[in-house]
Simulated assay, not measured.
Amino acid sequence: MAGQLEVAATRLPAGPFLYRALLGFVCLSAPGLAVEVKVPAEPLSTPVGQTAELSCSYSTSVGDNFALEWSFVQAGKPISASRPILYFTNGHLYPTGSKAERASLLQNPPTGGVATLRLTDVRPSDTGTYLCDVNNPPDFYTNGLGLINLTVLVPPSSPICTQSGPTFVGGSTMLRCSSSEGAPKPVYNWVHVGPSPPPSPGSMVQDEVSGQLILSNLSLTSAGTYRCVATNQMGSASCELTLSVTDSSKGRVAGTLIGVLLGVLLLSVAAFCLIRFQKERKKKPKESYVGSELREDAMAPGIFEQSSMKVDSSKGLLERSPSTSTMTTTKSKLPMVV
């Protein structure tokens, strides 16, 4: 075969493009020189904790240079970001990476045309794209790489129920429900539970994908317990929320009544304080001014002191008090001018 290629090449005019085209045609037509890898066309899915088998088969003439490599890339990332899981070369198997303890080959050595990967105890982080790459130089490659998409199925985790918006009569509010885990992504369904009648269908609008429930035109009958159920093919989980609805008109009346009572209380306290202040002021004694106070028995200057007469009860005579034997005037000390 090599001699035929050399003869064909010497008879052709010079030109690399024509030479490569002829060489490719000869290699494709020669049996056992093409490498072709086959993998499932449909995505695979495996429940969490189970074992996944990623089927990969190939056709080639296995030689001393045969090599097989399995690699993995997380969902949403380019193929160029893939990382090896295991590879087989020179008759030996070499697991590698974070999945080394859980990854193995269904047939080892994989020289019989089967390169299926077995992955035990699958986890949510195992969801992504797996690459089966067969290399057997100098065989010509037609399709030496196969891609398999794997989804690890996870039941929904317990969702969290929340509420936002006013809850008074005539208003609107929103309930939310969300699970942090679940594959495929769960759908959400809200139901009203309890003895009270459910709200009218027109006042309840829910989105099964986002988990939102909008309650409009609230009434007192809208109050009660609401349950959200998150469901996927692996199972379901739920949470509950109790909604209270208040009558705004009653709230305004109650607020006005409370304001009036507070006003009356403040006025009563002010009146009590004022009355007590007046009483304390009346009880307080008057202040005395010593320097400017006049004695009632003081005699004005220029007026004669009157003598006091004492009656001697034994003699029956009137006697003058020694203190009144002399009389003085303020005028006698002043010179008299004629």
Results as ranks from 00 to 15, higher is better:
282 K>A: 14
54 L>G: 01
104 S>G: 09
139 D>Y: 08
133 D>P: 00
125 S>R: 09
110 P>I: 00
308 S>L: 13
278 Q>G: 05
148 I>F: 05
295 R>Q: 07
156 P>D: 06
237 A>R: 05
115 A>W: 01
235 G>W: 05
143 N>W: 03
148 I>Q: 10
23 L>S: 03
22 L>N: 01
262 L>W: 09
187 V>Y: 10
250 K>H: 11
38 K>D: 02
325 S>W: 09
88 F>M: 12
110 P>L: 02
194 G>Y: 06
39 V>H: 00
295 R>F: 09
157 S>Q: 03
170 G>V: 11
250 K>G: 10
242 T>H: 14
18 L>N: 00
196 S>M: 07
106 L>E: 11
275 I>A: 06
46 T>F: 13
45 S>E: 14
84 P>K: 11
203 S>D: 13
93 L>Q: 01
194 G>N: 12
269 V>M: 15
103 A>K: 01
297 D>A: 05
34 A>Q: 11
28 L>D: 01
175 L>K: 03
76 G>E: 02
238 S>V: 03
214 I>M: 08
239 C>D: 11
111 T>V: 10
258 I>W: 07
97 G>W: 08
60 T>I: 04
225 T>D: 09
26 V>N: 07
48 V>M: 15
50 Q>K: 13
232 N>C: 03
218 L>P: 04
199 P>Q: 15
281 R>M: 13
88 F>N: 11
3 G>K: 12
310 K>D: 15
300 A>H: 09
233 Q>S: 15
175 L>C: 08
215 L>G: 06
139 D>P: 01
275 I>L: 10
217 N>K: 12
211 G>H: 00
71 S>T: 04
182 G>D: 04
334 L>H: 09
80 S>K: 12
49 G>T: 05
259 G>Y: 06
134 V>K: 04
250 K>C: 11
57 S>M: 04
299 M>C: 08
127 T>S: 15
338 V>F: 10
196 S>C: 02
126 D>G: 05
305 E>L: 13
93 L>A: 02
160 I>F: 09
2 A>W: 05
111 T>M: 08
40 P>V: 11
182 G>H: 02
147 L>H: 04
120 T>E: 15
136 N>I: 02
234 M>R: 08
2 A>N: 10
93 L>S: 01
301 P>M: 14
91 G>I: 02
174 M>T: 15
309 M>T: 12
85 I>H: 03
328 T>S: 14
182 G>Q: 03
85 I>A: 06
327 M>Y: 07
96 T>I: 12
146 G>A: 03
26 V>S: 08
81 A>P: 02
82 S>E: 15
214 I>P: 00
312 D>Q: 10
153 L>S: 11
234 M>Y: 03
131 L>T: 06
338 V>D: 13
334 L>A: 09
16 P>E: 07
336 M>P: 00
127 T>H: 04
321 S>E: 12
69 E>G: 09
105 L>Q: 05
112 G>P: 00
73 V>A: 05
278 Q>K: 04
295 R>D: 12
189 N>Y: 14
180 S>W: 00
109 P>T: 08
220 L>I: 06
147 L>A: 06
226 Y>S: 03
15 G>D: 09
189 N>V: 14
133 D>C: 01
223 A>E: 07
55 S>I: 14
331 K>N: 12
70 W>Y: 02
330 T>V: 14
275 I>F: 10
11 R>M: 08
181 E>C: 02
228 C>V: 02
307 S>M: 11
327 M>L: 10
224 G>P: 05
124 P>T: 02
234 M>K: 07
216 S>G: 10
243 L>F: 13
